[in-house]
Simulated scan of single mutants.
Amino acid sequence: MSLWDDARQELDIWANSKLKARFWIRDDDAFEVSSDLERLRNVAVRFDTKIGLAIIPGKITPGLQEFLAENIQHFYPMCHGWKHINYNLGKNPAEFGPDRPISNMIVDAEFALQSFKECFGSSQPIFVPPFNRITPALIKALPQVGFAGVSLMPNHIERKLLQLNSWMKWGGIITMPRFKDGIRIDVHLDVIDWRARTAQNTKIVSNLLVQQLRGRRLGVVPVDTPIGLLTHHLAHDEPIWRAINETLDFLRSHESADFIDVGQWIDGNSAAPQYG
Rank of each mutant, 00 (worst) to 15 (best):
N155T: 05
D190L: 05
S206V: 00
E110V: 03
T49E: 11
L251Y: 01
N86W: 00
K169L: 05
D261N: 15
V205N: 07
F179P: 06
V150K: 14
A69Y: 06
E246C: 12
I102L: 13
I139D: 08
P239E: 11
D99C: 12
D5L: 15
V45Y: 09
E95N: 01
V43W: 11
G263H: 07
G172Q: 04
G97D: 02
I56V: 01
I72F: 08
N88W: 07
V45G: 10
E158C: 02
H232Y: 05
A54W: 09
I139L: 13
G97C: 04
K203P: 11
E255P: 12
L11C: 03
L189C: 11
L3Q: 14
L138V: 01
S270Q: 13
S103W: 06
P273K: 14
T49A: 05
I134L: 03
N86A: 00
Q212L: 11
M168Q: 03
I85T: 13
Q124E: 11
K59R: 14
L218D: 04
F120C: 04
V45E: 10
H254W: 07
P136D: 03
D258F: 08
A21W: 03
I102T: 09
L209I: 12
G52W: 09
Y275L: 14
F116A: 02
A257D: 04
P154Y: 02
A94L: 03
H236W: 10
L152M: 06
D29E: 02
E255R: 15
N71C: 08
L3W: 14
F116I: 02
I244T: 10
V205T: 06
D6T: 10
T61I: 10
A112E: 05
V107G: 06
L64N: 05
Q73G: 14
D181I: 02
V221W: 13
K59Q: 08
M176D: 07
G90P: 08
T247E: 12
D224F: 13
